[in-house]
């Protein structure tokens, strides 16, 4: 008998609470595939940053919308894609991997700008496509 394919798809409203609920569902889906905690943690961090970015930047009052996250177990890890109908990424590009400077006086320490840096550190094969008014970002979280 062929093994059941390990994959999932979640759609949720574009709000911080929606992201939280979606991440809990995704975590349960990946966990049921007997994935180790390290991959689970890396996947949750990357998905959280990507999904928060969609909710905070791509969607707004003019572009309320649904976000869809899909995941599938592949040979080398888990492949994910996130699709939304919001604004495109600035310049149609994935933001860079630079971390904000932290060797600053206390009051100048950054309180943001860490998200994409972590995405670049933890994800492989980051790909962005804009097609028919939709954004699609896909990436691999490797097993090791």
């Amino acid at each position: 008998m062929p093994q059941e394919k390990k994959c999932f798809s979640v759609r949720f409203p574009g709000s911080p609470r929606g992201v939280r609920r979606a991440l809990l569902i995704i975590r349960a889906e990946i966990k049921s595939a007997e994935v180790d905690n390290d991959l689970l943690g890396r996947a949750e961090t990357v998905l959280a940053e990507v999904l928060n970015n969609v909710v905070e930047h791509a969607l707004d009052d003019k572009h309320p919308g649904l976000v869809e996250a899909k995941g599938e177990a592949v040979k080398t890890g888990w492949q994910f894609s996130v699709i939304d109908n919001g604004c495109p990424l600035p310049d149609g590009k994935i933001p860079g991997k630079a971390l904000p400077r932290i060797n600053t006086p206390l009051q100048d320490l950054p309180e943001g700008g860490f998200g994409w840096a972590m995405v670049h550190m933890l994800a492989r094969d980051l790909t962005y496509q804009r097609r028919s008014g939709r954004n699609s970002l896909s990436f691999l979280i490797p097993f090791h």
Partner: peptide, 20 residues
Amino acid sequence: DFIDSSGLGAIVAAMKQLGS
């Protein structure tokens, strides 16, 4: 068991609130 970059930013903000 989980923080994202916004949570991290909030912890940094909490430290800044305490002053030097």
